[in-house]
Amino acid sequence: MRLDESLLAWYDATHRHLPWRANPGKAPNPYHVLLSEIMLQQTTVATVIDYFHHFINRWPTLTDFAAATKDEVYHGWQGLGYYSRARNLHQCIQKIVAHHQGQVPQDLETLLLLPGIGPYTAAAISAIAYNGPVVPVDGNIIRVFSRLLHLETELPQLQQEIREVVKDYVPPARSGDFAQGLMDLGATICKPQKPLCQECPIQQHCRVAGLQIAGLLPRKKVKAARPVLHGITFWYEDNEGRIWLRRRPEKGLLANLMEFPGTPWRPEPYEAFIDVPLHLTTTQWTVLPKQIIHTFTHFQLRLTVVKATGEDQLGDIQVMPQDFKNYALPTLMKKVAAMVVEVSGSD
């Protein structure tokens, strides 16, 4: 039996039941595929499921989503991280509704012109939503093929090598199910550690099945240590207990989200308030004893939080702490708020 036949038979019998996924051989909803693929970028399946249900319940169609406000989308996205994905998703769906008659495009070239859609996501939508003759090469598929063919090339170069190799394995009739079968295989059988080779439906085609080397593939370059940045965040409240918030710039990290005012983030630690450009009537700042440590993809951030009460303006809006839930605060700022509450409660 050919590799694709073995894999598809296994997928038909054991596929994962995911809310955005159609049963094998059935036509999926392209909107569901698009939404889930954007959500799954750099996020686990287990995390995405509840968010997917929430979005589909609130915005059942592409048209409904396109009509949502930016703040509504950001608020619904809280906790998924990488908020540029939410912005791009919103813009992408608005363009589909405005310029593609509300139909998710099928061909790769058109998909790649939409915000937030790169080569992998375009391939995933084309294959899964429309049975296009492509395979989206994600981490699971890289792992499966690096072992299947015993490829010693290191990442990230390995990814391009597999993009070329996998084309020879795509079945013309069920490319979407084939891609999802490979994903399921990588997630449940061909695991990063201790692959279950004896349970693998394509082990007879694999060059390292059952060998100790299987768990060492794919080869990865040793990552350099993340740089550390430092900053000061200001918890500044008025006499009624309202806290100043401001909106971050439209582009860049945590774009358009709300935050507590603070200094720029830089490699050098701040010493007290030297170099901090604050011109307020309030001078009685309390430095809180705990530091916030938050890890982003490319760096670690260490924030010192300082607290004061005054009547100066230090942001865009004032909000009572119990109303923070109504604003799109990133996880980093939620950590700040939780720490302030914890420290204040122990005083």
Score class of each variant (00 low, 15 high):
residue 156 P to K: 05
residue 272 A to V: 07
residue 216 L to D: 15
residue 338 A to L: 10
residue 335 K to T: 11
residue 93 I to K: 00
residue 294 H to S: 12
residue 232 I to W: 03
residue 246 R to F: 12
residue 219 R to M: 15
residue 49 I to Y: 07
residue 131 N to V: 01
residue 160 Q to E: 15
residue 232 I to L: 14
residue 223 K to T: 12
residue 39 M to N: 04
residue 24 P to N: 02
residue 339 M to C: 08
residue 23 N to D: 14
residue 212 Q to T: 08
residue 171 P to D: 06
residue 92 C to M: 06
residue 74 Y to K: 05
residue 22 A to L: 01
residue 151 L to V: 12
residue 59 W to H: 07
residue 248 R to M: 15
residue 326 N to I: 06
residue 93 I to H: 03
residue 44 T to A: 14
residue 159 Q to W: 14
residue 69 T to I: 09
residue 274 I to Y: 08
residue 308 A to D: 09
residue 178 F to R: 01
residue 217 L to E: 15
residue 272 A to Y: 09
residue 306 V to K: 08
residue 128 I to V: 03
residue 316 D to F: 06
residue 137 V to W: 01
residue 171 P to T: 00
residue 245 L to H: 02
residue 249 P to E: 12
residue 225 A to D: 09
residue 261 P to Y: 08
residue 90 H to Y: 02
residue 119 P to H: 12
residue 336 V to E: 10
residue 53 H to Q: 11
residue 205 H to P: 04
residue 227 P to K: 01
residue 273 F to W: 05
residue 303 L to W: 12
residue 143 R to G: 09
residue 38 I to N: 08
residue 80 L to K: 04
residue 205 H to E: 14
residue 98 A to I: 04
residue 58 R to E: 15
residue 63 T to S: 15
residue 191 K to Q: 15
residue 238 D to G: 02
residue 340 V to Y: 01
residue 28 P to A: 04
residue 47 T to Y: 04
residue 20 W to V: 00
residue 222 V to N: 12
residue 115 P to H: 13
residue 295 T to L: 07
residue 212 Q to R: 06
residue 172 P to A: 15
residue 266 R to V: 06
residue 288 L to R: 00
residue 96 I to N: 03
residue 61 T to V: 00
residue 148 L to S: 02
residue 256 N to S: 13
residue 313 Q to F: 05
residue 54 H to S: 10
residue 111 L to Y: 09
residue 187 A to V: 00
residue 33 V to L: 02
residue 204 Q to F: 05
residue 18 L to R: 02
residue 288 L to C: 09
residue 40 L to W: 08
residue 138 D to H: 04
residue 107 D to S: 04
residue 193 Q to E: 14
residue 8 L to W: 01
residue 59 W to Y: 12
residue 256 N to E: 11
residue 325 K to C: 14
residue 149 L to I: 04
residue 265 W to F: 11
residue 99 H to D: 14
residue 311 E to G: 02
residue 321 P to C: 03
residue 196 L to K: 09
residue 27 A to S: 10
residue 35 L to P: 02
residue 57 N to L: 10
residue 48 V to I: 04
residue 189 I to S: 08
residue 53 H to R: 05
residue 173 A to I: 06
residue 80 L to G: 11
residue 197 C to Q: 11
residue 23 N to L: 10
residue 317 I to E: 14
residue 59 W to R: 07
residue 209 A to N: 10
residue 189 I to K: 01
residue 9 A to W: 02
residue 250 E to Q: 10
residue 324 F to E: 04
